[in-house]
């Protein structure tokens, strides 16, 4: 028995659009954060840590920790604050430590 109803079937989202993450096609809803679209697509590992090269991904979800940083147009930006748009070319900071 549940006392907290399941609302997942009642949420309507914008159309899916396609962008690329390290050349792999990824679909996300236009307007949602890149971090969420990447998590949904199973791309949790966004960058390698300095020194030990350990995998890292979104952590604070509020633009503070810098763990979710990815590259767009040569700029390092926080994927939790960047928005999905069609045709976006997103690169990870994996394997560059």
């Amino acid at each position: 028995m549940r006392l907290v109803p399941d609302h997942s079937g009642r949420i309507r989202r914008s159309a899916l659009v396609e962008f690329t993450f390290d050349d792999a096609p990824v679909k996300g809803h236009a307007g949602e954060s890149l971090a969420v679209a990447l998590i949904r697509a199973g791309h949790l590992h966004l960058r390698d840590a300095p020194e030990d090269g350990a995998p890292r991904g979104a952590f604070c979800c509020m633009g503070l920790c810098q763990e979710c940083v990815i590259g767009i147009d040569g700029l390092a930006v926080e994927s939790c604050r960047e928005i999905v748009a069609p045709g976006l070319v997103v690169t990870s900071f994996r394997g560059r430590a």
Partner: peptide, 24 residues
């Protein structure tokens, strides 16, 4: 705790409120 897939507890609520999405 640095493993991808670990989120802050308060941070997760940002995901819920803004994106109505779950981390897993």
């Amino acid at each position: 705790w640095t493993t991808p897939g670990v989120l802050g507890l308060a941070g997760a609520t940002a995901l819920f409120k803004q994106e109505l999405a779950l981390p897993g």
